[in-house]
Design a protein around this nucleic acid. Structure first.
Lengths: 191, 191
DNA sequence: GCTTTGGTGTGATGTAGATCACATCAGTCA
DNA sequence: TGACTGATGTGATCTACATCACACCAAAGC
């Protein structure tokens, strides 16, 4: 836990300056969580009081159609923030599932604590502002890819962006992230 | 201009509290801009020192493939913030175009001013943090729609979300936003 | 007024990728 | 060790949508 908090402190300080007293105020509001592969961090139909910073491991966030088809919205690993942000921000029940693709550990922060800390510690508000802007930009690039590129190009872009991922997850998950069928992906992924 | 600033003040105060002295500090850093239909707010290949708050009017932000095909990323109107946020945030040249679909007016804020004001006025940092989070959530919903819905469903969702838009823009632009050809859209949009 | 330009509909045809149906192979568990 | 279960590849077929090629009409510019 202490080690995890130290890592988080470094992570935040890559983006904003944080005084020792500010950090001492923030740190106690995080709790530690450990999950095994296949366990769920967030589940559809349940409220989402927390967001999570991944200390280590790998998760996927996905949603399901009525017919049972799954679509992966995001892979998240070390240093990523994850949650069902829609449910979290608007106090709704989750429409997403987030489960672990590997044993993983997290630091957990509640919505109330986040809002309170952002009021009290402006640097933290700026940290989340900048993180959120970058998340927005990344998603916008994803939309652009979905609109202009075919499945094979999107696959090549993905393995270029996250080269380690192919070794860590089955290809059916890559297909689900790319919005393409497992079979189609198999026809052009030659390795 | 004064009227526009008053509207902006109200807009910000819908999300965060802002003291009079804070507002008096912020307000002078906005400038006013007026464009006619077909004029450009942002152009591909040029740097993007500003973001814009739309006082009134309607713009589209879009990108082009090498072959000249256009894809609309966003329609933005009254109360929306627009820019090429990737270029703006990372000081890169623009890959997007933003042009006016109607005569429009804007309040303009530079990147340096925004960062400076967010440092000095924590409420503003929180304002942009929350706005940015909501933008992220909206984009995530768009990705989900692209992954699970067919073109007709996406069209119906769009006219439900922005019912006025169909009257304000040609259908080819709706098609371009939805990621579908003009002809295909024409076959199921019966009005 | 006439001409040009842009918006829209619609038929015919082409195609990326989905779906269905298998086969193979590795890992896991009793 | 033998029996599942899950990951992967591959052929055959189907389908949503793109593309091409028109026609028609309203608004804008000379």
């Amino acid at each position: 836990m202490d080690e995890a908090l130290q890592k988080l402190k470094n992570h935040i300080q890559e983006t904003v300056k944080l005084s020792e007293s500010e950090w001492d105020f923030i740190a106690p509001h995080f709790s530690f969580k450990r999950l095994k592969k296949h366990q769920f961090l967030v589940q559809e139909g349940i409220d989402v009081p927390n967001e999570f910073w991944i200390v280590n491991g790998l998760v996927r966030s996905y949603f399901m159609e009525e017919n049972g088809k799954e679509h992966i919205l995001q892979f998240a690993m070390e240093n990523y923030w994850v949650s069902d942000f829609n449910a979290y921000q608007n106090h709704e029940i989750s429409t997403l599932n987030i489960d672990c693709l590997e044993d993983s550990t997290f630091l957990v922060m509640s919505f109330e604590d986040r809002e309170m800390m952002c009021e009290r510690v402006p640097a933290l508000a700026n940290f989340f502002r900048i993180k959120s802007t970058k998340g927005f930009i990344a998603l916008q690039k994803r939309v652009m890819g979905l609109m202009k590129d075919n499945a094979e190009t999107r696959y090549n872009d993905l393995i270029e962006k996250l080269p380690g991922l192919t070794q860590r997850v089955p290809k059916k998950y890559l297909a689900s992230y790319l919005g393409v069928s497992r079979e189609t992906l198999s026809r052009f992924s030659n390795d």
